[in-house]
């Protein structure tokens, strides 16, 4: 294995570690806000690392652009959805219930 392949494997493994930590937080943290925190922050870094790792293995520039685009889109939407969920919980003073899911 070449250096770049080792680096790629290392990055993907590190990314997976962040996902694991995020999942553990989702299961273990006490309320919505902390769980959101665990989920969105960890997943953004985790996905970024995975994308960086996979990007090292690609040869075509188009694939590289697509990979970065995926990361950016997930970043933007998860940040927004995190805000929306937290806002809804704050307004209602409780966990988002069935009537709030459609937003």
């Amino acid at each position: 294995m070449s250096v770049s392949e080792w680096l790629s494997a290392l990055l993907i493994a590190a990314g997976t570690g962040f996902f694991l930590a995020g999942s553990a937080g989702l299961l273990r943290f006490p309320d919505v806000f902390t769980r959101l925190h665990a989920l969105t922050k960890a997943d953004n870094v985790g996905l970024g690392l995975v994308v960086a790792g996979v990007a090292l293995q690609t040869e075509s520039a188009v694939t590289l652009v697509k990979l970065v685009l995926i990361w950016w889109l997930v970043l933007v939407s998860s940040a927004t959805v995190c805000c929306l969920i937290a806002g809804a919980v704050l307004r209602h003073g409780r966990a988002p219930a069935a009537e709030e899911e459609a937003r």
């Binding site: 889109l73 933007v76 927004t80 805000c83």
Partner: peptide, 26 residues
């Protein structure tokens, strides 16, 4: 009214509008 409830209350969160403005063209 179900669909527009938020907008009628003037409370589409700005983040949501920003996201939609960004995502729909994409």
């Amino acid at each position: 009214p179900f669909v527009t409830r938020n907008a009628e209350a003037g409370s589409v969160p700005p983040q949501q509008t920003a996201l939609v403005n960004l995502l729909v063209p994409v």
